[in-house]
């Protein structure tokens, strides 16, 4: 029986504090060990906190003194993490340091709990070894993902960029956490477009690709469905390389939508006549799931946004029955 390992609760982390210059420069408090990646707007380092020896992730961003001022993506991510960090399935922001570099430019360091890998690396590791991720592991990871998304949506926030690279993992515990909220938005704000933002297309919901301006939480659910399929097969489900190609990929596999399966689709701004493909069975697209798994996947990848299963409902789906038993609710 699959269960999520429950660690003893850690001592409550000190609330994030913000410090401005003064005292010690941010880098005097931390020893950079290696660069481990790039977030939406900055480089990420593995680092050691000198005072405690704790390993953390430092996300560094330089603030050029240009017309933009403090970048919106940085503001949104920090503000949202200040709101969301208490959930175990959202990466924890430990501190925020503001300093100045040698050229006199302002530098922001976001100090996060360190997670040793991400879902993208995890999947790729299995793919290169020619092995599937065990079904029980897929289920545990998906359950945590749905819990994190349910929490974020419950706080009125869209992530908008859910993809394996933004889902951090701890290899030992199989803990999974949502990260990189730089493109997140409050649900109440209509979003006209991804302004000047270049994003992976593979996890993008069809209503966004068709130019809808009033999209909402279902766009994240679509991403969850794509990630679910990828966990099962080790391959991205819809790997398009342009917006049109992305749409065609989806339509070829799931069938071209019409007014019956998706009322209103014909009125979306980017809609026009597409080749009429018939849907392929999910069991052929994503071999390796049981009936409950296919049922959940189908509900995550519903064309009509209003019919896509909410994350909170997904947690109650029969697919997660054995995982839920181990959940200390």
């Amino acid at each position: 029986m699959a269960t999520i390992q429950h660690q003893a609760k850690p001592a409550v982390a000190a609330a994030p504090s913000t410090t401005t210059g003064g005292g010690q420069r941010a880098m005097d408090l931390y020893e950079k060990l290696e660069k481990v990646g790039e977030g939406t707007y900055g480089k990420v380092y593995r680092a050691r906190e000198k005072a405690t020896g704790r390993i953390v992730a430092l996300k560094k961003t330089r603030l050029p003194e240009d017309d933009e001022g403090v970048p919106p993506t940085a503001m949104r991510e920090v503000s949202l993490l200040r709101m969301l960090s208490q959930d175990p399935h959202v990466v924890r922001l430990l501190d925020l340091k503001q300093g100045v570099n040698k050229e006199g430019q302002t530098i922001l360091y976001l100090v996060f709990e360190y997670m040793d890998t991400d879902l993208k690396k995890f999947i790729r590791g299995h793919r290169s070894n020619n092995e599937k991720i065990p079904a029980a592991t897929v289920k545990i990871l998906m359950y945590q993902l749905c819990k994190g998304v349910a929490f974020v949506h419950g706080r009125g926030v869209l992530h908008r960029d859910l993809k394996p690279h933004n889902l951090l993992m701890d290899r030992k515990t199989m803990a999974l956490k949502i990260a990189d909220l730089g493109l997140s938005r409050a649900i109440t704000v209509p979003v006209k477009k991804y302004t000047h933002e270049i994003l992976t297309l593979w996890y993008r919901a069809p209503e966004i690709l068709l130019g809808a301006t009033h999209y909402s939480t279902p766009v994240d659910i679509w991403s969850v469905g794509c990630i679910f399929a990828e966990l099962v097969t080790n391959q991205p489900l819809f790997p398009g390389d342009s917006e049109l190609q992305q749409l065609l990929h989806i339509f070829k596999l799931l069938g071209t939508p019409n007014e019956q399966v998706w009322p209103g689709v014909g009125k979306l701004p980017n809609w026009h006549e597409y080749p009429q493909w018939k849907p392929t069975k999910l069991s052929a697209l994503v071999p390796g799931l049981d009936a409950d798994g296919y049922d959940l996947l189908e509900k995550l990848l519903e064309y009509e946004p209003a019919k896509r299963i909410p994350a909170k409902k997904a947690l109650e789906h029969p697919y997660f029955k054995d995982v839920r038993k181990g959940d200390a609710h």
Binding site: V70, V78, R82
Partner: peptide, 19 residues
Amino acid sequence: KTVQRMELLVLSTLRWRMR
């Protein structure tokens, strides 16, 4: 750059709770 400095002061004073 002056506006940016003021933005940073507001952000740190409000502890970056802008949401």
